[in-house]
C-alpha cells in the first residue's frame, strides 16, 4: 500500500507544481525519485516531525499542497500538538501519510508501533483520518485527499497487503465496505487486518458459522447504517483492529450501537494500550490476543452465548 500511495503522489507532483513531497528522514524509493526529478517540490526536514508538521501548514497557507511521509508513531504522535494547533484548528490543506502503522514494524517494539494514532487524530477538528485496508484503497484515498481541500491523515502499513477491492473502487469518507455476506456474526475491521478477518470467515464456514465482514476506513465519520444493519441482521458484532480499542474502531462502533440503543452480542479485539512482547508480526498478534485463533475462539464463544 505504500507504493500504491507514493506512486500516485509522484504523478501528482509531476502534474501539479503546488504538490510537495515532505519527509523527516523517512525516505522511500518513490520519494527519492521525486527528490531527483523535482527537487523544488521535495524537502527532507531531518528528524524533526514537529517542525515539519507546522512548516507544512505554512506551506499550505501559501498555496502549496504538502504530502508528509513518515512513520505514524513519530508523525502522528510526537508531532500531535503541532498537527492540532497549526493544521487541524486552522484547517490547512496538509496531507499526512503515516507508514508502518499498527504492528507492521512489530519487532521494533512499542516506540515504533503506531497503535494510538486513530484515537488521537479522530478527536481533532477538520482533519479526516483514513485507514485504507488494501493497496487500491490506499491509492484511492490518496487521490481523494488531493482533491479534498482540507487536512487529511492516511494511515498506512507497509507493502504486500492483500487486495480485496476492484480497480474501479472509489473512496468516500464515512462509507464502509461489505467484503463478505453472512447472517451469523459480523466481523468489523479497520485497516489491512481485514485479511485476517477474511481468513477467519472462511475457516468458520467449515463449522457452518457464516460471518459477514465489513471494513471501515474512516471512523469519523462512521458508516452508521452499515453497522446498524449488521446489528439487526446478524447475531453479534466483533471488531478487530491493530490499534488500541480505547478510542479506536472498537470504541467507535460501540458508540454507534450505544447511541442507537441497540443491545447485541458485542466484543472488541484489539490492543489495550501499547502492544507488548517480542517476535514477528504474527507472534506479536498472538501475544496481544488478536491472532486468527483468538478471533475464531471469540466468535465461537459469542455463538454459544
Amino acid at each position: 500500500m505504500r507504493e500504491a500511495c507514493t506512486n500516485l503522489i509522484y504523478e501528482l507532483v509531476k502534474q501539479d507544481a503546488r504538490v510537495m513531497a515532505l519527509t523527516a528522514d523517512s525516505r522511500n524509493g518513490v520519494y527519492e525519485r521525486i527528490r531527483d526529478e523535482f527537487p523544488a517540490q521535495y524537502m527532507d526536514y531531518g528528524i524533526s516531525e514537529a517542525n515539519m508538521a507546522s512548516s507544512a501548514a505554512g506551506l499550505a497557507a501559501s498555496g502549496m499542497i504538502p504530502f508528509l511521509f513518515g512513520m505514524t508513531n513519530f508523525m502522528a504522535m510526537r508531532a500531535f500538538e503541532f498537527i492540532r494547533n497549526d493544521v487541524a484548528i486552522p484547517s490547512y490543506n496538509v496531507k499526512f501519510i503515516g507508514i508502518f502503522s499498527g504492528l507492521s514494524r512489530g519487532g521494533w517494539g512499542a516506540t515504533h508501533q503506531g497503535t494510538e494514532d486513530v484515537a488521537l487524530l479522530r478527536s481533532l477538528p477538520n482533519l479526516l483520518v483514513i485507514t485504507p485496508a488494501t493497496p487500491i484503497e490506499a491509492r484511492e484515498a490518496t487521490r481523494w485527499a488531493y482533491r479534498h481541500e482540507g487536512p487529511v491523515y492516511i494511515r498506512l502499513e507497509a507493502s504486500g497487503e492483500k487486495e480485496y477491492f476492484s480497480n474501479i473502487y472509489e473512496f468516500a469518507p464515512g462509507i464502509g465496505q461489505k467484503l463478505r455476506g453472512g447472517r451469523d456474526i459480523t466481523l468489523i475491521t479497520m485497516g489491512p487486518i481485514l485479511s485476517e478477518a477474511m481468513e477467519v470467515a472462511e475457516e468458520l464456514e467449515k463449522e457452518n458459522i457464516y460471518a459477514r465482514v465489513l471494513s471501515l476506513s474512516t471512523v469519523e465519520p462512521i458508516d452508521e447504517s452499515l453497522i446498524l444493519e449488521a446489528a439487526l441482521h446478524t447475531k453479534g458484532i466483533l471488531t478487530l483492529e491493530e490499534h488500541t480499542i480505547e478510542g479506536g474502531l472498537g470504541s467507535a462502533v460501540a458508540e454507534v450501537l450505544a447511541e442507537a440503543g441497540i443491545g447485541t452480542r458485542f466484543r472488541r479485539l484489539g490492543l489495550h494500550g501499547c502492544a507488548t512482547g517480542c517476535g514477528n508480526r504474527e507472534e506479536i498478534r498472538a501475544l496481544n490476543g488478536i491472532s486468527k485463533d483468538d478471533v475464531c475462539r471469540t466468535v465461537r464463544q459469542m455463538m454459544e452465548a
Binding site: 524537502m43 514537529a50 517542525n51 508538521a53 507546522s54 512548516s55 507544512a56 501548514a57 505554512g58 506551506l59 499550505a60 497557507a61 501559501s62 503541532f82 497549526d86
Partner: peptide, 8 residues
C-alpha cells in the same frame, strides 16, 4: 515552525 513553511 509555521514561518519556515511560509518562507520556504
Amino acid at each position: 515552525c509555521f514561518a519556515t513553511g511560509t518562507a520556504l
